[in-house]
């Protein structure tokens, strides 16, 4: 256990080691470790934010889907209503048309009947006149009774 100059040498070595550690070992190591700790913290925060964003986004999506569904339902309902309405209108139109056709037909028939009656009457009158002529030819002079005949014709 002799103290000798080794002590001084050791002290110098020690000082150099400490100096070197202080300059080139400790600061870079701790800086980088701190940096990484910060990065990890940031990453975790970002992940948390991402999670929240995702939650919000999925909420929004849900909301949108709900709205879309509602809109679709409304659309379908409106379409059905409109279809019913169209059908109803078509029915109405068809009914009106039908009635019109019927009315027209009736009017035509009426006219036809009228015309037939007219023709019939004329024929009946002719036949009657002809008959009366045949009966009366013997007694009635056509020239004499012309006005009478005409009045009869008009009455028929």
């Amino acid at each position: 256990m002799d103290i000798n100059a080794t002590l001084l040498g050791q002290a110098i070595t020690f000082a150099i080691l400490v100096w070197f550690t202080m300059k080139f070992v400790w600061p870079p190591l701790t800086n980088m470790m701190d940096e990484r700790a910060k990065r990890i913290a940031d990453g975790l925060a970002a992940a948390e934010r991402g999670k929240q964003d995702l939650e919000q986004a999925s909420k929004r999506v849900e909301e949108q889907i709900r709205q879309a569904k509602q809109q679709a339902t409304e659309l379908v309902m409106a379409a059905e209503k409109r279809a019913n309405q169209i059908i109803e209108e078509a029915k109405q139109a068809a009914k009106v048309e039908g009635e019109k056709i019927i009315t027209d037909a009736r009017a035509e028939i009426g006219q036809e009947v009228q015309r037939a009656k007219e023709a019939l009457r004329a024929q009946v009158a002719d036949i009657t006149v002809a008959g009366a002529e045949k009966i009366l030819r013997r007694e009635i002079d056509a020239a004499k009774h012309a006005d009478l005949l005409a009045s009869i014709k008009a009455e028929l």
Binding site: D2, I3, N4, A5, T6, G9, Q10, T13, I16, L17, F20, T21, F24, V25, P28, L29, M32
Partner: peptide, 30 residues
């Protein structure tokens, strides 16, 4: 023969080598 100005070269050199190993490994990692 010793005396105060003698140096224990074993202590000195072994500790120096170990100190350099320490610095080498740590700077390398840094």
């Amino acid at each position: 023969d010793g005396g105060f100005w003698a140096i224990n070269i074993d202590t000195f050199s072994v500790s120096l080598v170990l100190g350099f190993i320490f610095l080498f490994v740590f700077t390398r990692v840094a």
